[in-house]
Design a protein around this nucleic acid. Structure first.
Lengths: 141, 141
DNA sequence: TATTGTTATACTCTATAACTATA
DNA sequence: TATAGTTATAGAGTATAACAATA
């Protein structure tokens, strides 16, 4: 086996690990927010709305179409977690958390952190080591 | 901010990084296998069929319903990548890669490794450091 | 009785295209 | 003309339930 082959085998193995970790993380997230009555995308949107944000921005962050955000926003309004507020540019609508939305966001945030694999399976030192590697992988160098 | 709070903030940050890396990895995988004419789940199934395996096992590994595997198997047979072969237990059908299936698996495998973030963004040493941390996260201790 | 794979069907997620109102 | 959000619609992906064959 050449060193080249070994690199490839290594890359494949790590990629598989990443995929399976990601799937587990996603499933954990879904399980964590389900008791709050929220499907995964609604919960993610709530977490992203730390500040009121244009619907367009949300579409970028969730990597989906604007029309789908309309859909999510309708559901979030129905649940009274979010309000549409007009922006300075009058084409724009901002999504802003309601009081109930803020409470929900805090609850999600806490539940997610408590149950996270990252907290349960790694020590402080291990997390410190992991962080820069993930940042490199995420492409924020 | 208490040390407790900091741990939580840390866990949230790392979790977010993992999620965004996973999404990127998934999109990269889809882009990589698209030229081969394979949607993501078909490609994953082909990669998993290193050995002929009962359809049931595939359902477990892909975390989906058996009926969906029937669906995938039909498509893979249509593409002549896979054959259904009877198992010793006569209820069971194994999926086995055809010659073309093996070639396709090798092509996918190579393309995925070449384009993987893990290979492109990390040095050998960084991958060595990352491996045990991912293994802990994946729960294979 | 429990399990494997299949079928038919239905539901969820998400995008596309055409529209409106602003800019 | 280009952009933000909306609407209606369609497609992909995936599950559920009932079933046949086998254990």
């Amino acid at each position: 086996m050449t060193s080249h082959d070994r690199q490839y085998a290594d890359a494949r193995y790590l990629s598989q690990l990443l995929v399976s970790i990601a799937e587990q993380a996603k499933a954990d997230f879904a399980d964590t927010v389900a008791p709050l009555g929220l499907p995964i995308h609604l919960a993610r949107a709530v977490l992203l709305l730390d500040q009121p944000a244009p619907m367009r921005d949300l579409a970028d962050q969730l990597a989906c179409d604007r029309s789908y955000i309309t859909n999510l926003a309708d559901q979030l309004e129905e649940l009274e977690l979010v309000e549409r507020v007009p922006g300075q540019d009058r084409r724009v609508k901002l999504l802003a958390l309601t009081k109930k939305g803020v409470q929900t966001r805090d609850a999600i945030s806490k539940a997610v952190a408590e149950r996270s694999m990252v907290l349960q399976r790694l020590t402080d030192a291990q997390r410190e080591t992991l962080r820069p590697l993930l940042e490199l992988l995420a492409g924020q160098e």
